[in-house]
C-alpha cells in the first residue's frame, strides 16, 4: 500500500471491533447454545433458531413490527415532503419554522413515552377527556387499537420533522433554473413536482427512508412506558419481545431472536436502498 492514509482509520476500526464485532460474535455464540443464567451451556446447533421461528409470539411481534414500520414510512415521508414544501424559502419565517420543527427531535424517547402516558391516562389525561366528548371511551390500557394508534401517532409527531428538515435542505439545493425550465416547457405543478422536485430529492429521501425504517424497527421506550407492550401484546414490537426473552434469562433464545432481528433489518434496508437508487432513473422502456 503506497497510500498511508488508511493508517488513520485503524483506531476507529479497533473501536468498532470492540463495540460491534465482539458483542455480535457473543450473541451468535449464545444463539447456538442452550444457556440459562447459572447453568452450563450446551451446544444445540440451530435449535434456538427453529424455536424462535416457530414461536407464535415472535411471529406476531414481527408482523406487528412490519405493519408499524411500513405505516410509519407511508405517513412520515409524504407528510415530511409536504411540510418541507410549505415552509418559507427565505425571510425571517425560516428560522422560526426550523426551530419549531426541531423541538420534537430534541425530546428523548423516554420523555416522549412519559408524556404520552400522562396525556392518555384514563383518569387525568386530556385525550380520553377529548374522546369522551364524542362518547368514545378511549383507553390505551384496554383497547389494543387505541394503544397501537397512540404509539403510531407519537412516532409521527416525534420523527416527521426529521424527514421534513432533510427534504427542506434538499429543496434548497435545487437550482432555480430547473423550475424556470419546467415553466417554460409548460409543465403542470404536478409534473414539475414529479419530474423536477422528486428526482432531485432522491438522495436525501434515500437517507430519510433508511433512517426512519431502521429507527422505527428499534422502537422500544415508548410502548414500554405507555402500556408495557400491552394491552395483551398489542404494542409488543420486536425489540420489546427480544428484550423480554433476555430478561427471562433464556439467553440462547434471546441470542437467536436478536440475530434474526438484525438480519431482517439489514435485508429490508438493503432492499429499500436498491429500490430507491434504481427506480425512475430514466431507464430505457
Amino acid at each position: 500500500m503506497k497510500n498511508r492514509g488508511w493508517l488513520f482509520v485503524i483506531p476507529a476500526l479497533a473501536v468498532l471491533a470492540i463495540s460491534a464485532f465482539i458483542p455480535l460474535m457473543t450473541v451468535i455464540n449464545y444463539s447456538l447454545h442452550y444457556i440459562f443464567a447459572g447453568s452450563t451451556p450446551t451446544f444445540v446447533g440451530f435449535e434456538n433458531y427453529v424455536e424462535v421461528l416457530r414461536d407464535s409470539a415472535f411471529l406476531r411481534a414481527l408482523v406487528r413490527q412490519l405493519v408499524f414500520s411500513m405505516g410509519i414510512l407511508a405517513v412520515e415521508v409524504p407528510l415530511g415532503i409536504c411540510i418541507a414544501l410549505c415552509l418559507p424559502k427565505r425571510g425571517p419565517g425560516v428560522a422560526v419554522c426550523l426551530v419549531l420543527l426541531g423541538i420534537p427531535l430534541l425530546i428523548p424517547f423516554n420523555v416522549v413515552g412519559i408524556i404520552a402516558r400522562v396525556l392518555t391516562q384514563s383518569a387525568v389525561g386530556v385525550i380520553p377527556e377529548f374522546f369522551a366528548l364524542f362518547n368514545y371511551s378511549f383507553n390505551v390500557a384496554k383497547d389494543p387499537v387505541d394503544a397501537f394508534m397512540t404509539i403510531f401517532l407519537l412516532d409521527v409527531w416525534h420523527w416527521t420533522p426529521l424527514v421534513a428538515l432533510l427534504c427542506y435542505a434538499g429543496l434548497q439545493a435545487i437550482p432555480d433554473a430547473y423550475y424556470q425550465a419546467a415553466r417554460i416547457d409548460g409543465a403542470s405543478a404536478w409534473k414539475t413536482f414529479r419530474y423536477v422536485t422528486l428526482p432531485k430529492l432522491r438522495s436525501v429521501l434515500i437517507i430519510g427512508v433508511l433512517l426512519r425504517f431502521m429507527d422505527s424497527f428499534k422502537i422500544y421506550a415508548e410502548p414500554l412506558l405507555l402500556t408495557g407492550g400491552g394491552p395483551g401484546d398489542a404494542t409488543t414490537f420486536l425489540s420489546l419481545h427480544v428484550a423480554r426473552k433476555a430478561e427471562s434469562y433464556n439467553l440462547g433464545y434471546a441470542g437467536a431472536s436478536s440475530f434474526i432481528y438484525l438480519f431482517i433489518v439489514i435485508v429490508f434496508s438493503y432492499i429499500f436502498f436498491q429500490l430507491m437508487t434504481h427506480i425512475g432513473k430514466g431507464e430505457t422502456k
Binding site: A177, A181, Y195, V196, L198, P199, G280, K281, G282, E283
Partner: peptide
C-alpha cells in the same frame, strides 16, 4: 420564449427521448 441555461437543465428521471 424558451431558454437554455448556463448549466444543462435536464430531467434526470427521463431518458433522452422523454
Amino acid at each position: 420564449i424558451a431558454q437554455v441555461f448556463q448549466f444543462p437543465v435536464v430531467y434526470d428521471s427521463m431518458n433522452v427521448f422523454d
